[in-house]
């Protein structure tokens, strides 16, 4: 299919929430290269923050550098998706090695949700329970499957979605970046439309708000930065039990005034 140019405008925001004494989340937004990342770190002391920051930096640097493929090329996926996978593999290795180097950092890890937008193609790679959502024609759809015990239980019909939302083992992950020398990320691809909205978030958002209320808030906001702020405020109003991180990206048709729109948005930022 012919590549069709779409414009990305995006903003991100992170908040400690009310219950935690530190913020272990990190995010990265690069509209120019179409790269969006959310990471939710774990580990004692400051290790969680270090893990999420390190993972993001490695992925960022990968795309700013030569970005060679590492590991096996996953044939059904496009080159862009394979590059994203390579970046996550490198980040995994970096975090794992850092964790081995110091007893203070041992056992640290992070979730990762990364989206790469090139033309009208979206590539997604994720590990853990940070999510990517697509909002299209007033519908919200989660594009990632959480690597968590409760989600595995739902998939196997052991418990219902409603039971999963109330479960006390929601924070048990089956996969994370940086805790083993090898990890397999889940990959996915999608064709984007004019008017699509992307949301990347850490579990601090989706454990506090339902998909429906997330959809309402995002539809209400007129700018990406407002959407981020409204989402974080709403999650904090519900208790803010965890760090909350969100990235909201608008996908718009490219036209002569889009550069102007981008400029004004950056002014209001």
């Amino acid at each position: 299919m012919r590549m069709y140019k779409l414009n990305l405008t995006a903003a991100g925001k992170t908040d400690q929430g009310f219950a935690r004494s530190n913020n272990e989340d990190n995010y990265y937004v690069d509209v120019k290269s179409g790269l969006l990342i959310v990471a939710d770190g774990m580990g004692g002391h400051a290790a969680g923050e270090i893990a999420s920051k390190l993972a993001i930096n490695v992925i960022r640097d990968y795309f700013q550098g030569e970005n060679k493929f590492i590991r096996n090329y996953d044939q059904p996926y496009a080159p862009a998706t394979n590059k994203l996978n390579s970046a996550l593999c490198l980040a995994n290795l970096a975090v794992f090695e850092a964790a081995q180097s110091s007893p203070q950092l041992k056992g640290m890890g992070t979730t990762i949700a990364a989206a790469l937008i090139i033309g009208n193609k979206l590539s997604i790679a994720h590990i853990g329970d940070s999510r990517v959502y697509l909002i299209r024609s007033d519908n919200i759809e989660q594009l990632t499957d959480d690597h968590s015990i409760v989600n595995e239980q739902v998939k196997r019909d052991i418990i219902t979605k409603e039971e999963a939302a109330k479960s006390n083992i929601k924070n048990l992950l089956t996969k994370a970046l940086g805790i083993a020398p090898e990890v397999k990320a889940d990959l996915n691809e999608l064709t984007l439309f004019d008017g699509d909205i992307l949301l990347l978030c850490s579990d601090g958002l989706n454990t506090m708000l339902t998909d429906e209320s997330i959809l309402k808030i995002i539809s209400f906001a007129k700018r990406t930065s407002d959407a981020c702020e409204f989402l974080i405020n709403a999650a904090n109003e519900k208790g803010g039990k965890d760090n909350i991180t969100v990235i909201v990206g608008y996908i718009k048709k490219k036209n002569w005034y889009s550069a102007f729109n981008k400029f004004t948005e950056s002014l209001w930022g």
């Binding site: 774990m42 890890g109 015990i149 595995e152 924070n171 048990l172 992950l173 089956t174 996969k175």
Partner: peptide
């Protein structure tokens, strides 16, 4: 705290 469980434990829970 969020943490990861070993594959062995995972199998048992599922």
């Amino acid at each position: 705290e969020t943490f990861v469980i070993a594959p062995y434990d995972k199998k048992k829970m599922l």
